[in-house]
């Protein structure tokens, strides 16, 4: 039983780390603000939820895992909301939207 618990927790944590890594790559490599926010907003939410579920599985059935799952529900509600707030502020402030550069000479 212990082994199954540890393996499941490890799989969930590794999945969370993978999505953290993809969100970070997106934040570093994408060309403008809105695309970067698109990467971190979705990637970080999924990664945090996966990591918290893994830690709750490792903790077992007690008060601590209930609190960890509460954090997961809170992050699942709060993270998209804060992303929405920042992106709306960016739109209102008139940030430039990135467009693909057209080759010169071609109409």
């Amino acid at each position: 039983m212990e082994t199954i618990q540890n393996i499941l927790a490890g799989l969930f944590l590794l999945g969370g780390c993978f999505f953290f890594a993809t969100a970070t790559v997106g934040l570093l490599r994408f060309p403008d603000f809105f695309t970067r926010l698109h990467a971190t907003g979705k990637g970080d939410t999924l990664a945090v939820t996966l990591c918290l579920i893994g830690l709750a599985i490792h903790s077992g059935l007690n008060m601590t895992s209930v609190k960890i799952l509460l954090i997961a529900v809170f992050m699942f509600l709060a993270q998209p909301t804060s992303t929405h707030a920042i992106s709306r502020a960016g739109v209102r402030c008139g940030l430039e939207i990135w467009r693909k550069k057209e080759k010169e000479g071609n109409p």
Partner: peptide, 22 residues
């Protein structure tokens, strides 16, 4: 710009949450 910084700081906060629990 300040917007990129705010988005990045939010990302740092979520990662710190997991590090604290670990």
């Amino acid at each position: 710009g300040v917007f990129n910084r705010v988005a990045a700081i939010s990302a740092v906060g979520t990662k710190t949450l997991i590090i604290l629990l670990i």
